[in-house]
Simulated scan of single mutants.
Amino acid sequence: MTTLVASDLDRTLIYSAAALGLTAPDAEAPRLLCVEVYESRPLSYLTETAAGLLAELARETLFVPTTTRTREQYRRIRLPVPTPGYAICANGGHLLVDGVADEEWNRSVRSRLDSECAPLAEVSAHLRTTADPAWLLKERVAEELFAYLVVDRAELPASWLKSTAAWADERGWTVSLQGRKVYAVPRPLTKSAAMREVARRAGADTALAAGDSLLDADLLLAADHAWRPGHGELAEEGWTAPGLTVLPERGVAAGEEILRRLLSAARGGRED
């Protein structure tokens, strides 16, 4: 039997300093392991306990990192496990096999987007021209697949987000706010489609998943069982679904608990 574990990374397994959510006195804080450096500065962490759990999980299951990050952004992460046999990047647009992008998979994804959605150029232009410089910090296109804005969230008008989401929906795209980023993603570009492809190739019998954002919802729905933390977009929406366990933990403690639950489920529910 092969158990596939597809997990989101940012704010699910790994956390920036701002997202750690540490609540204990400093002297009682968990020891942290840095797993990402950006521009020579530490950026992302998990607890040392979580690192040990992840190592066990990767030994006992088919662990598949599943992220909206681009391939370049994903490759900055140094998880305490051997290079995964499969990794899903760009929200399902790229499938890495032993660290190398599967170009055939990417071509099949692009073909579907071309036939079912408005062009990326149209959507990114709309974001750029309707955004107000008063709250727009950066505008980016990721892997020529989707677009996102980095914004001053405190100044971002809810009315702009609502009207932009409605405009995009008519064109086959979804818009979501995650932290300081507003993502515009083609509706068929999903983590779940890539997860199903990995499951098919690997002959997996069971799929487990974890995630915190709206872009993870389809992944969680596609799994046999899934977990989400007590923070993030899904928590703010009160989102739930059959087969989903909602955890009360928030921040880096949630990442540790998610790994504990994934490992227990992979072992048939045993707590070792």
Rank of each mutant, 00 (worst) to 15 (best):
A222L: 08
W167R: 02
A90V: 06
A226R: 02
D152W: 12
Q73G: 04
E39S: 11
V100I: 14
D132M: 12
L262Q: 04
A202V: 10
R76T: 03
P30D: 13
A17Q: 13
L221C: 03
D152M: 13
D8P: 08
G99D: 07
L149T: 09
V109T: 01
E144D: 15
A202Y: 11
E143H: 02
V100R: 12
S163Q: 15
R180E: 15
G268C: 11
A118M: 08
A217F: 06
I14L: 08
E236G: 13
N91Y: 00
V151A: 10
A51N: 07
L244S: 02
E60T: 07
K162E: 15
D10E: 12
A125L: 10
E60S: 11
A142M: 02
V151T: 09
D152Q: 15
A202E: 15
T70N: 11
R270L: 14
R201S: 12
P25G: 14
V81S: 05
R140F: 08
R180S: 13
E236N: 12
V35Y: 03
L62C: 10
D272M: 00
E197A: 09
L79K: 00
Y38D: 12
K138N: 15
G251A: 10
G211L: 02
D10I: 04
G255P: 02
E28R: 14
L96Q: 02
E155F: 09
R260E: 10
P119V: 08
T47I: 13
S7N: 04
T129A: 14
